[in-house]
């Protein structure tokens, strides 16, 4: 059995790390530490009811778990196979507890694409990403495709920016690839300032390896060897996890010199923003990163 505990910012601030520790201790006490795996994941998207504890394979979804509830979950659910009803998610419409996440209205209509690994893998362990097919797209690009083919594929996919303007990604890459320069950079805009918008944070905290891989693919397509992530300093957890992912990717030869044994080299650095809303705009962001005032080019 796997116990997934949300380690995103929301759940972490309501004490999920203590919950994880309690699980480790109590499972050890019961001699179950080899049978039950405890995994700290990214966000489940249900921060309102955090901290979330999910038990697999039965998809049991416990909400607002307190550290002192852990003993009951272990003794009742993990040892005896009886779910703890009070901790199950309650459907606000009929006030009934829902047995598992598959039956929660919130998840029923969701198809997760960008966030497919979020709340599923341990974001601090690159091996879990690899087990889900992470870095295979990069490997395929480097070994089987030319940069032009990668760009053509991007254009054919119809992928567009998600920032509002919806600029076609393939076209953007093509323009960058055509541009002549001594040194090109891939910039990942992880500045997020709209009130209540946490999608960048979710993906960076929950699945940072997908960002690393995507940046490297972009670098290969446009001929850049350096990547920069502009991220706000208010996202300490996202920064930590991204750094861990970058270091692990370097260790595995998925980032750095001669990636995957090819001629292509690419590395990523972080640049911190101070949280100015306007610095999410492309030109202001670039000004800010080179040390100028963060104002857009007019």
């Amino acid at each position: 059995m796997h116990v997934l505990i949300c380690g995103g910012t929301g759940c972490k601030s309501s004490n999920s790390l203590q919950i994880i520790e309690n699980f480790h201790n109590i499972l050890k006490e019961k001699g179950l530490q080899d049978e039950v795996q405890v995994i700290k994941t990214g966000c489940f998207g249900f921060c309102e009811k955090g901290p979330i504890v999910k038990i697999m394979p039965d998809n049991t979804f416990y909400t607002q778990v307190k550290p002192e509830d852990v003993r009951r979950i272990v003794e009742e659910h993990l040892v005896k196979g009886r779910k703890v009803p009070e901790l199950l998610y309650m459907n606000p419409e009929n006030k009934e507890h829902v047995s598992d996440s598959k039956h929660m209205d919130f998840y029923k209509k969701q198809i997760r694409i960008a966030l497919r690994n979020c709340g599923f893998v341990d974001p601090e362990n690159i091996e879990e990403s690899i087990a889900r097919g992470g870095y295979e797209a990069l490997a395929k690009c480097l070994s089987e495709m030319t940069p032009e083919q990668v760009i053509a594929e991007m254009k054919a996919s119809g992928l567009r920016g998600r920032g509002g303007a919806g600029f076609p990604t393939g076209l953007k890459w093509e323009l960058c690839a055509k541009n002549k320069a001594d040194q090109k950079y891939v910039i990942c805009n992880a500045d997020e300032g709209d009130p209540g918008a946490f999608m960048d944070r979710s993906i960076l905290e929950g699945d940072p390896n997908s960002i690393v891989e995507a940046m490297a693919i972009c670098g290969y397509a446009i001929g850049a060897t350096k990547g920069l992530v502009y991220i706000r300093a208010e996202y300490p957890l996202a920064i930590d996890r991204l750094k861990i992912a970058i270091n692990q990717a370097r260790e595995y030869g998925l980032l750095g010199e001669n990636i995957l044994g090819s001629d292509f080299s690419f590395d990523i650095e972080l640049r911190y923003g101070a949280g100015a809303f306007v610095c999410g705009e492309e030109t202001a962001l670039i000004h800010c990163m080179v040390g100028q005032r963060g104002v857009p080019t007019l």
Binding site: I130, A131, Y135, A139, E144, E251, Y252, L254, L260, G261
Partner: peptide
């Protein structure tokens, strides 16, 4: 850690 050298290596690892 030995580095991953190819797509085949990565797939085997997966």
């Amino acid at each position: 850690m030995t580095k991953v050298k190819s797509l085949a290596d990565l797939k085997a690892m997966r």
